[in-house]
């Protein structure tokens, strides 16, 4: 009986975690991307015919803001691959292999993390008309049509645009 109760509680907790994971996947592009799983330089492949149009802001933290509007990219790309593409490969990162499959971006176009300034990913939540920090790394953000994202070099967490509205999450 004791083991049965323990097992049932564990099963409930597993179900809660699976549900939360599914919700997280659905909230950030339908499925979590695995297309840049390998460490090392990656500019992303252009395989596939589906294309999505995205808008990206890079705020260098020194008053320089650069918008890359209506960028057409393969629908299979994630935000890390888009970043490498926009920066012409000039992205510095630390790679975490399996099981994380994540790049921790530490520099873009020769602007590198230096405490207390860090590159921070922001997502524009259209439903709330506000920016939210991404709860997942750039590799896990699969891009959808019309999506707007930003990299901001800042003391976390200032809005990526001066005086822009922010929310805790897009949920």
């Amino acid at each position: 009986m004791f083991y049965l109760v323990l097992g049932l509680i564990a099963a409930l907790l597993v179900a809660a975690q699976v549900g939360a994971y599914y919700y997280l996947q659905r909230s950030y592009g339908g499925s979590l991307s695995t297309s840049s799983a390998q460490c090392g330089p990656s500019s992303g492949s252009s395989a596939g015919t589906n294309v999505v149009e995205t808008n990206t802001l890079i705020n260098y933290g020194n008053g320089t803001l650069r918008w890359f509007n209506e960028t057409n990219i393969p629908a299979t790309w994630n935000f890390y691959q888009l970043t490498v593409h926009l920066a012409n490969g000039n992205v510095k990162e630390q790679c975490y292999g399996t099981p994380y499959n994540e790049h921790y971006v530490t520099g873009i176009n020769n602007v590198n993390n230096r405490s207390p300034f860090y590159w921070t990913v922001w997502i524009f939540c259209q439903s709330q008309n506000a920016w939210a920090t991404s709860p997942v790394g750039a590799d896990m953000i699969r891009l959808s049509n019309g999506q707007t994202l930003a990299w901001a070099y800042e003391v976390p967490y200032q809005p990526p645009l001066p005086n822009a509205r922010t929310v805790a999450s897009c949920f």
Partner: peptide, 8 residues
């Protein structure tokens, strides 16, 4: 939010 974003 903590439960969902921390799940991975």
């Amino acid at each position: 939010i903590g439960l969902i974003t921390g799940v991975p």
